[in-house]
Design a protein around this nucleic acid. Structure first.
Length: 694
DNA sequence: GGAGGAAAATAT
DNA sequence: ATATTTTCCTCC
């Protein structure tokens, strides 16, 4: 491995393929792909799309690159400046859009992202325009503050109705959601800048597609906004409601989830908020929202207003909900309900999410936890009491935290958030119908480790963890997976769950005494049924073959100047499906020195799905494309154990390669047809292999 | 619990 | 008909 100064290989997938894949975001795309996809391969590939690229140079990984992201984000909160960049400016809505891209471009790792075309883009693009609108709206909201009745706009009853709205759901929707969240937050705190918010929001909002989304968020927003619980309540509500709405298969027992849920709740901390939301279950939809709202509200003066709004909203919502319910098959509904409860449990107080960082941070885990726990318990059924947590005051105006779909840098100024130990590339996620399948592990057998560098204060911080997409371009909460809190004797790391915009997050203490380092042994991965998620209104992603995720870590650092620096880093992709034998291997890097020209061995690193039966075929072609030579390299079966593929290239190869002819090597797992191999092109001149689809 | 395998159910 | 997903079962 070492030797491999690996080159990073980027696979370019063909057009669309890449696009869709990872994210699977847009169904449309995918579908298009599939259909269009001329190649069958494409389908698969698509699935893997993300895969391809991958390669980051080992060295790389500059998180800093991310800086750009910040810019993007603009959000007030964020980012201080990132390493490079300056902070973002505030508003730049416009930029926002652009920024969006940027982020994507950059990988979490810092690797350059692919630019694949995604539908998403579209969405973003929307921003600008939409932004204007949306932002405008939002801004109003925000700027005006929660107060602004404007928010009320609720009006779009529809939005409310739309479950989608409610549940922002994952990915895309999530975006919207997020946006919401963000907006909320911002709203709360109100930054004047909100503009920033707006931009973001817009993004989130984006959804044009799901009109509902927009509306929803907003709609919700209004209500929510007040609370802004954006995250919380809405989310919660959403979760319960939408999230699960569908369990189509009535037959399938949702119950499982319940179990989990409880367990979660067990997690002690938090949850105050939950209760509020939760109570909802029955009324579920409505209530949750409300509760959410409330929480946040507390803080704000606007509360009253908000409350009123909320109430109104609830009413609406409820109705809406009802409607929804009607539409949905009974079973489904049940599920939903069930879910919701669980969700609620999980949920945590919306407040936390948003959590003003300050608050969170300030709160010390212990205290916090305890408090929450207490609250929590109560919460369940009911309606939210007073906002415990919330009540906590949010002392300051803490800036709102960036939405989960915002791209953040991994380093800013002196701070750098890094993943010291990466998770294994495979982790079979469990369904709600199953028991937990344990925590995500590291290759070494241990667990992933995350550390924050450059932080010299004595105040503990909170490390947030959620499951994100594996899509290079855009990192956002994964709609089909949720982080699952693992507890037990074997777990050494404290954590508690928080729901933010349909996304469950684990909050883990980052303590100075531990050198701001955390061993992530408390994080499992829960798989949600595709059918459930896809039914959410506003959800555009498809779950099929969208089985790769990344662990996303965030930390929010309050600065003396009142600003908050938000950093984010994502792990390498993790394949969560059981099946692996047919998976297309993913090559991230290849050794440089030992490349073919020198004959002998070549090392392919960090890929997913390297199996003993993986095949690597070398094909040498002349400039004119004439096929000169082909051979299958011998694969060292043992190397596979460490996500490495050591291949031996036939001796005579050297002799053949004397001029810069094109050399391709194909990597594939046994069951694949040659046409489905992932192809890499080696160009002696620059030594950078590139992968593309055959 | 936490895995690993695999049958049953669905989606393409 | 094949590919994937989701539910079950068994075992440590």
């Amino acid at each position: 491995m070492q030797d491999t100064s690996s080159l990073s290989v980027k696979a370019k997938f063909n057009f669309g393929a890449a696009a869709g894949a990872a994210a699977g975001q847009e169904r449309g795309l995918q579908r298009l792909k599939s259909t269009a996809a001329a190649d069958m391969k494409s389908a698969e590939e698509d699935a893997y799309n993300y895969t391809p690229n991958v390669s980051l140079p080992i060295g790389m990984g500059n998180p800093c690159l991310s800086t750009q992201y910040h810019t993007l984000q603009s959000s007030p909160v964020i980012p201080v400046s990132s390493c490079h960049q300056t902070g973002y400016s505030v508003q730049n809505d416009n930029h926002a859009a652009s920024s969006y891209y940027l982020p994507q471009a950059l990988r979490p790792n810092g690797a350059p992202a692919l630019e694949s075309p995604r539908i998403e883009i579209t969405a973003y693009s929307q921003y600008p325009e939409d932004e204007v609108e949306a932002s405008g709206r939002e801004d109003h909201i925000i700027k005006r503050g929660v107060n602004s009745i404007v928010t009320l706009t609720l009006p779009n009853v529809d939005g409310y109705r739309d479950p989608s709205c409610l549940s922002p759901a994952s990915s895309i929707s999530s975006r919207s959601c997020n946006s919401e969240a963000s907006s909320y937050e911002s709203g709360f705190y109100n930054y004047d800048n909100s503009p920033q918010n707006s931009p973001w929001q817009s993004p989130s909002v984006s959804p044009r597609g799901s009109s509902s989304l927009l509306s929803c968020p907003h709609a919700i927003g209004p209500a929510a906004s007040p609370h802004h619980s954006p995250s919380n309540s809405p989310q919660i509500g959403a979760m319960a409601e939408e999230g699960w709405p569908a369990q189509p298969r009535g037959s399938r027992p949702n119950s499982p989830s319940c179990k989990r849920k409880y367990s979660f709740s067990g997690s002690s901390y938090q949850q105050t908020s939950c209760s509020p939301n939760q109570s909802p279950t029955p009324s579920s939809h409505g209530s949750p929202r409300v509760s959410v709202t409330d929480e946040n509200w507390l803080t704000n003066t606007n509360q009253y207003t908000n409350l009123a709004i909320v109430a109104a909203i609830n009413a609406l919502t409820t109705d809406g909900m009802a409607d929804m319910g009607e539409g949905i098959p009974i079973k489904t509904r049940k599920t939903m309900l069930d879910l919701s409860p669980s969700m609620s449990l999980k949920v945590e107080p919306g407040g936390e999410d948003l959590g003003p960082e300050g608050e969170l941070r300030h709160d010390e885990y212990p205290s916090r936890l305890s408090l929450k726990k207490e609250n929590y318990c109560g919460g369940f059924l009911d309606v939210p009491q007073h906002p415990y947590s919330w009540s906590k005051p949010k002392p300051y105006l803490s800036p709102s935290l960036p939405a989960l779909d915002w791209q953040l840098p991994s380093c800013s100024g002196p701070y750098s958030l890094q993943i010291e130990v990466q998770p294994k590339s495979h982790h079979r996620a469990h369904y709600e119908t199953e028991g937990s399948r344990g925590a995500v592990k590291a290759l070494s057998g241990g667990h992933p480790v995350v550390q924050l560098y450059g932080y010299m204060e004595s105040e503990p911080l909170t490390l947030q963890l959620f499951i994100g997409t594996a899509d290079d371009r855009l990192l956002r909460p994964h709609a089909f997976y949720q982080v699952h809190r693992i507890t037990g004797k074997t777990v050494s790391t404290a954590s508690h769950e928080v729901m933010q915009s349909n996304t469950k997050m684990l909050e883990i203490p980052l303590l100075p005494e531990n050198n701001m380092r955390a061993i992530i042994d408390c994080a499992g991965i829960l798989k949600l049924r595709n059918s459930d998620i896809e039914l959410r209104k506003g959800e555009t992603d498809i779950g099929r073959k969208n089985t790769r995720v990344r662990l996303v870590f965030r930390v929010h650092i309050n600065q003396p100047n009142g600003r908050t620096v938000s950093l984010q880093v994502a792990s390498n992709p993790i394949e969560c499906s059981q099946r692996s034998a047919q998976e297309l291997p993913l090559v991230e890097k290849q050794s440089v020195e030992s490349y073919p020209t020198t004959g002998g061995k070549m090392m392919l690193l960090g890929g997913l799905n390297f199996l003993p039966e993986s095949k690597v075929v070398f094909v040498e072609k002349a400039q004119d494309g004439h096929h000169l030579w082909e051979t299958e390299a011998k694969v060292d079966k043992d190397s596979v154990k460490t996500n490495t593929l050591v291949v031996e290239i036939p001796p005579y190869r050297n002799q053949r390669i004397s001029s810069p002819v094109q050399v391709n090597f194909y990597v594939c797992n046994g069951k694949r047809k040659r046409s489905q191999y992932q192809r890499f092109t080696y160009v002696p001149a620059n030594g950078n292999p590139q992968a593309d689809l055959l």
